[in-house]
Amino acid sequence: MPYTADERINLSPKVLSEYIISSQHRRVGNANKCVWTISFEEEVNCFSNSFTENWISNSKAWGLIIENDFLKVIGLNNDKQELKLAKFVDANKNNIWHGYPADYMNRAQDIPLENILKKWVTKKYITKAKMNKIRRGISCNL
């Protein structure tokens, strides 16, 4: 399905929420926003997988993409550093979500919750040592 920016995407019955691909996280050069480097479809699939895997708490969710047993680069921060974790939010708590590449090293609010990090360790997506670095906002080789 071809997706477009800034339109609601109904993901039912797979996910009982709507998702918006936010154009503000697609514009290269926006000094205040992290930007996706993956396709619209990959972004939507990452969001859907966050729900399927229950990487959610309240109105926040986190995601990642595994490709050939490695975390895939999904976006860039303001300094053009590669990012491999995603954060999704339902800011108005109305079941309409949007997401962006999470810059856990520079933005404390982008650090995934500990219970989600532990799920990733259990699935061997990250190591316990990397989990501890992420929790503290320290750069690590994901």
Rank of each mutant, 00 (worst) to 15 (best):
M1S: 10
T4V: 11
R8V: 07
L11G: 01
V15D: 00
L16T: 08
E18S: 13
E18T: 06
E18I: 06
E18D: 09
Y19W: 08
I20D: 01
S22C: 13
S23M: 08
V28F: 13
G29Y: 04
N32H: 13
N32A: 10
T37Q: 11
T37E: 11
T37S: 14
E41L: 04
E43G: 09
V44H: 06
V44W: 05
F47W: 04
S48W: 03
S50V: 04
F51A: 00
T52A: 12
N54P: 11
N54F: 07
I56R: 15
I56A: 06
A61R: 01
W62P: 04
G63I: 04
I66G: 05
E67P: 07
N68H: 12
N68Q: 12
D69C: 07
F70N: 13
L71S: 03
L71W: 02
L71H: 03
K72I: 08
I74Y: 07
L76F: 10
N78S: 13
D79C: 10
K87P: 06
N94H: 11
N95K: 15
I96H: 07
I96G: 09
W97V: 12
Y100I: 08
D103R: 14
D103A: 14
D103G: 14
M105T: 15
R107T: 15
R107C: 15
Q109P: 14
P112C: 01
L113R: 12
E114A: 09
E114P: 11
N115S: 06
N115K: 09
K119G: 00
K119W: 00
T122H: 14
Y125K: 14
T127D: 02
T127K: 07
N132M: 05
N132Y: 00
N132R: 04
K133Q: 14
I134C: 02
S139Q: 14
N141L: 14
